[in-house]
Amino acid sequence: MMTSQTETRSTKPTHTVYVLKPQADTEQADWIRVGAAWEHGDKDGLNLSLNILGQNVPVVVRKNKPKT
């Protein structure tokens, strides 16, 4: 069960996740879509769903906060 800290508000992703693959003999890169992300309701993180080698891998990203 998710806590209110990491809940998302929308079923549609708010971000798209890409990896950049360098092209030979150029400074350009191919942008390859590898997943989607949803911003947390508190705006301090994201839930990512990455497709890696045919497997969906969930990842949570949280903003660093100063230690008290």
Results as ranks from 00 to 15, higher is better:
27 E>A: 14
21 K>M: 13
28 Q>T: 11
35 G>W: 11
1 M>E: 06
66 P>R: 12
1 M>L: 06
41 G>S: 14
39 E>H: 00
3 T>S: 15
5 Q>I: 14
45 G>E: 07
51 N>D: 08
16 T>P: 00
27 E>D: 15
12 K>M: 08
53 L>A: 10
10 S>V: 00
34 V>I: 15
50 L>K: 01
34 V>Y: 06
42 D>W: 02
23 Q>P: 00
6 T>P: 00
14 T>K: 03
68 T>F: 03
45 G>D: 06
48 L>V: 03
33 R>H: 06
53 L>S: 12
1 M>I: 04
1 M>Y: 06
61 V>G: 02
25 D>P: 01
66 P>I: 09
15 H>L: 10
54 G>T: 08
58 P>T: 08
53 L>P: 00
44 D>G: 10
29 A>R: 10
42 D>V: 03
58 P>A: 08
17 V>M: 11
2 M>S: 09
6 T>W: 00
8 T>D: 00
34 V>Q: 10
53 L>D: 14
37 A>F: 11
35 G>T: 11
62 R>V: 07
58 P>D: 04
10 S>R: 05
46 L>Q: 06
49 S>W: 04
34 V>N: 07
35 G>C: 13
3 T>F: 06
30 D>T: 14
67 K>R: 12
54 G>V: 05
23 Q>C: 12
43 K>Q: 15
28 Q>N: 14
59 V>Y: 10
24 A>T: 13
21 K>W: 07
34 V>D: 06
64 N>E: 11
15 H>F: 06
56 N>A: 05
9 R>V: 07
36 A>W: 11
37 A>T: 11
17 V>L: 13
59 V>E: 05
17 V>N: 04
47 N>A: 10
2 M>T: 09
42 D>T: 03
19 V>H: 05
25 D>Y: 13
